[in-house]
Design a protein around this nucleic acid. Sequence first.
DNA 1: GTTGGTACCTA
DNA 2: GTAGGTACCAACG
Length: 996
Amino acid sequence: MTDKTAKDTAHLTESADTSHAALDPNVMPDFEHMPNVASMDTSHVDKEKPPFILVDGSYYLFRTYHALPKTMMNTQGLTTNAIRGTLNALLKVMRRYNPTHMAVCFDTKSPTFRHTMSEEYKANRPKMDPELAEQIPYIHRLVRALGIPLLRIEGAEADDIIGTLTYRAVEEGHHVVISSGDKDMMQLINDSVILEDSFSGKVVDEQGVEEKYGIKPTQMIDLLTLMGDASDGIKGVPSVGQKTAVKWLNQYDNVDNILANASEIKGKVGEKLIEYADNIPRDKQLATIVTNLEIGQDWDDLRIDTDPTAYIEELRELYTELEFKNELASLAHPNHPANMAANSVADSKAETESQAQVAKTLQNQKQAAIIDIIKDSKAHDQAWHTILDEPAFDSLLQKLSAASHFAVDTETTSIDWREANIVGLSFSLQAHEAYYIPLNHSLEDDELTSKQLDQDKVLAKLKPILENPEIGKIGQNIKYDAHVLRRYGIDLNITPSNWKMDTMLASYVLNAAATRHGMDDLTRHYLHTQTITYEDVAGKGAKQVTFDKVAVDIASDYACEDADITYQLFEVFQEKLKDDAVNQRLLHELEIPVSQILCDMEATGILIKRAFLNELSKRFDEEIGELEKQAYYEAGEEFNLGSPKQLGEVLFDKLGVVGGKKTKSGQYSTGEAVLSKIAHPLAEIALEYRGLSKLKSTYTDALDAVADKDTDRVHTSYHQALTSTGRLSSTDPNLQNIPIRTKTGRLIRQAFIAPEGRVLLAADYSQIELRLMAHFSGDANLTKAFNEGLDIHSATAAEVLGKSVEDVTPTERRNAKAINFGLLYGMSAFGLAKQLEMTRGEAQDYIDQYFKRYPGVRKYMHDTRSNAVDNGYIETILGRKLYTPDINHSNQMVRRGAERAAINAPLQGSAADLIKLAMIAVDKVLPADNAKMLLQVHDELVFEVDADKVDEISELIKNAMQNVLSDTAKEMGWEVDFAVPLLVETGVGDNWDEAH
DNA sequence: GTTGGTACCTA
DNA sequence: GTAGGTACCAACG
């Protein structure tokens, strides 16, 4: 790297990087005289100069390979996630420190002294994925093409190179930034050395180590020695973890002292310490990062090549091959330093400046050049502001009122909207720019808290802007913000006109399976960076504080980032949606309106009869106690009836009941399917016990606990961007799995009631998924059955068995029902046989017969499977694309699973589309004063309705639901000619059981 | 205190 | 055989 004149870039692609000779793995480092970086005297270090940057390249390539989506690839199929991630990390650290000296260090494949020392060393690590291995040469080339020195020394690890260089740099008066996220590196931290992870953004200094571990960096090696690290072959002392190790180190300072005082240490751990004392010297050597490698060194080798023109062709080539479009475009930009520098040479010559002056001008430009390449290629300075005075607030208000659109985010005291109080608001009007208005921070000793603007005044002025549909708002999971702000008198009114985008819903509509849709996930997946986490600013576990107890300046960064990221995500999704009318419609016409409806339903809640639930609880409790007694009598001993493990042992080992099957984890299987076949009183008791304790713990007790103390209403939360098929899910509590099948279970439903003067109304789509099957398959027999209004399972039985519908017996109907459901689930003969308790052959005959009568269904299933294989996705009735990533998986089990899911997805997903349409259709016509929508249970909507209006409202709802495709969907731009009628059944009652 | 396994509730 | 959520135990740190 010393040859700065070479414009020929050929050498960049070679694998030899350095002039350093390889190290012999059989020669041990000189541990005896190894300098300890953590305890160095650093008084001579000049902190005014830029730091030396030592990058642990191997860390970034592994970390980013595993953290970023593997779907990131160029059109040639080359995975690029680690290349991109490592590149971003390098650029980030360079932007931050503007260094003159830097090295990116990598491990090599050659063995090192550690392999010689320990057979286990890294033996536990699986072979590197080929998708990662193929990226490594590109990363090396990229580093060199950016003019950054790259170090790989055979026989040495990146850690040890960094350790050695860190020691030498500090000795010579430079401070050092080690760019890595590996905790082993903490042993190198001192007053002049910090550790910075450019991927996670975490920075650790001397104080940071103490805060995290409660020990000094000088004690890190000893900590690792005691704790052990399986992946590094360090055995450590068994049963000693971080807690114990830190305790000992605080008491005795170091490992030698701990060993000297081992006899004082009591208990099992003390014995282990003595037992394993002999291993400790070796473990300590393994844990030590070498700081005195025998490598030559010339700081000039680590000087960043600041000539921007040097490798521009190589960079251009690389970016082209990798298809890094933004980076490539930046190279062509007239402001690019490479182009500017070239111009400057020409200009200077024209003006016949002296050679010295030319050189100086060039040098000055070179100084900034490499940094500018980076800034131009991606980076932007963040402009984040905290609003703490009236003029700043007024200026922000001006900008917001004049904007066509902006991103907004609320910071609160809780992730649960029901108890969230507002702490502050953040806004972003363009990428990389954001504003935070702190309102209710209350951390003591934070002088900024006293400067916060008045909440009521701020909200009063923001209200007209937030409610103004002329200004498009952008948010991430708007429903949450809407819940919070409605308590402060602001109606966010989630409509397509007031909201330009919900980034969570946009991501979900575009690809429900690509990632989860929380802000952190979206940032990683779509922006390829990492956000400050809530844990970073508020701590974690028991020590976590609410957001109002976070210092204003720290909170401001977090909040500004949220708004900024939301805006950036908006730009990404806007681009993706630009020419995608279907997904635009799904987002704006379907999901966004549904979001508002869900917000209202959640806020309304459903009334429960508390006293009745308490009564049930008590009753169940008594019966459970009785069952326990009987069980102990049967078993001849007391045991925990709720433990499947103990029950299995008592039943099969102690009592010698036959028919015990083991699960894969080696314990007896005691599931319902097993117990119900066992003719022993204990099995029966256990089943009854389980049923009752499930009802009590999951329903009677839980519902009572979550109901609002004042109103007796239960408010669930619907997740709109979670399932792989487009369904909703419900939590805290889950109101989509309230019992219905058994008589006792239905008692729980009776606790859901309507207030005085109202009744509950349930409206559900009849056989919606089978109707969708009829529609999609176009099968003549299936369509005919629905068009004639037949009972579908009886019709199936009649068809398959070749008899008339009237002659179908209940068993025959039951079997037909099983096959109908099996079809929806992509069943196999094996699965059906198990369900119907027949042989596999019989099941196969039944299936064959079915397909003979319903050939359209067979074709549909075949076509769906091949669509999934060809396109990588299937589509629902409204054109929602549901991706099937595992459809070509190499593992047959996984692949078959993906095939079944692919067959089910269009049916389940289309049913989900339809009920969402139905919610919108019903919401439009429902008279708000007389009725409220309360719950959605996949194919059912539950309402409370004024008792004296129930007949007309019931008709209204039924019509709206049955006509969603011909009316509502059509108005929105969907043309669907549905092959069979949509039938809705309604029921009314004083409670949910009666209404169903 | 967190995590995996088992069991069981729904459409 | 599809899609979810919750509770409990037992083991682990």
